[in-house]
């Protein structure tokens, strides 16, 4: 059972790559989500169109297809990137599209009276966004963002198929060299599970911070709406 852990150096190296991909991918996804999410509530039809095109296209493709396309097809038309960079691009672009829908949905869900109040107080559009709308929207965004973070972390396993040495890839190597098939994959899954639990702790901490900042009490129940929102198929808030 614990023989596999003799190769813990290999496993830790793999886990480190997985963590790097998760952090890199989620940072890219976050930037894209905020940019395109804000574009989705713009008053200009063209900017909103930009949001639709990005979201529909990158939400529509599977991460693995995108990754293969970047890795095998793009070099043939003259674009060649390092594998890690390719992987972070594919993961970030894909999850960013889901994130953009979360951001857009959250901004729309802020009660309309809040907009009206900012107009009554004569705040500029920038002040309105930064001081009133976004802080309230963030508390709505965090739970679905937490789900997306876990999805992204799970998504990193596809990079093992383009020969990046992440946790899954090392697992395959250890399985071939030791023949300990069952225990190797068991421990690999346990590693992923631990990473996921740590990420969830971070997200819960952030949720509590934001709720306290807004003077709200955190709600624990998962309602039908939040479960629907985290479905990877389509976005939130229509």
């Amino acid at each position: 059972m614990f023989d596999v852990l003799d190769s813990h150096e290999e496993l830790l190296k793999g886990a480190w790559i997985t963590i790097q991909l998760t952090v890199g991918g989620s940072l890219l996804a976050l930037v894209l989500a905020v940019l395109f999410g804000m574009a989705g509530v713009s008053s200009s039809r063209w900017v909103r169109g930009l949001n639709r095109v990005y979201v529909e296209f990158f939400r529509g493709t599977a991460t693995l297809v995108l990754l293969y396309w970047f890795f095998y097809a793009l070099p043939l038309v003259g674009f060649k990137f390092a594998p890690m960079f390719t992987a972070i691009m594919a993961l970030g672009l894909n999850v960013g599209a889901y994130g953009a829908e979360v951001v857009r949905g959250a901004i729309i869900s802020v009660p309309k009276a809040q907009y009206e109040a900012t107009i009554a107080l004569n705040l500029t559009p920038t002040q309105r966004m930064i001081r009133v709308i976004l802080p309230q929207a963030v508390s709505l965004m965090l739970p679905p963002f937490g789900n997306l973070l876990i999805e992204l972390m799970k998504g990193t396993a596809v990079v093992s198929l383009i020969t990046i040495g992440d946790l899954t890839f090392r697992g395959k190597e250890i399985q071939q060299s030791t023949g300990e098939t069952a225990w190797t994959f068991f421990w690999i899954l346990v590693f992923y599970f631990v990473i996921a639990q740590v990420l969830q702790l971070f997200v819960r901490f952030a949720e509590r911070r934001v709720d306290r900042m807004l003077g709200r009490r955190p709600s624990r129940d998962t309602s039908l709406a939040t479960v629907s929102a985290s479905a990877a198929g389509t976005g939130v808030g229509g």
Partner: peptide, 18 residues
């Protein structure tokens, strides 16, 4: 919770090989 939090690819290996 365990199945949901871990990636599909190692799970595929686990089902297929084990």
């Amino acid at each position: 919770e365990f199945i949901r939090c871990t990636p599909l690819i190692p799970q595929l290996f686990f089902f297929y090989f084990v």
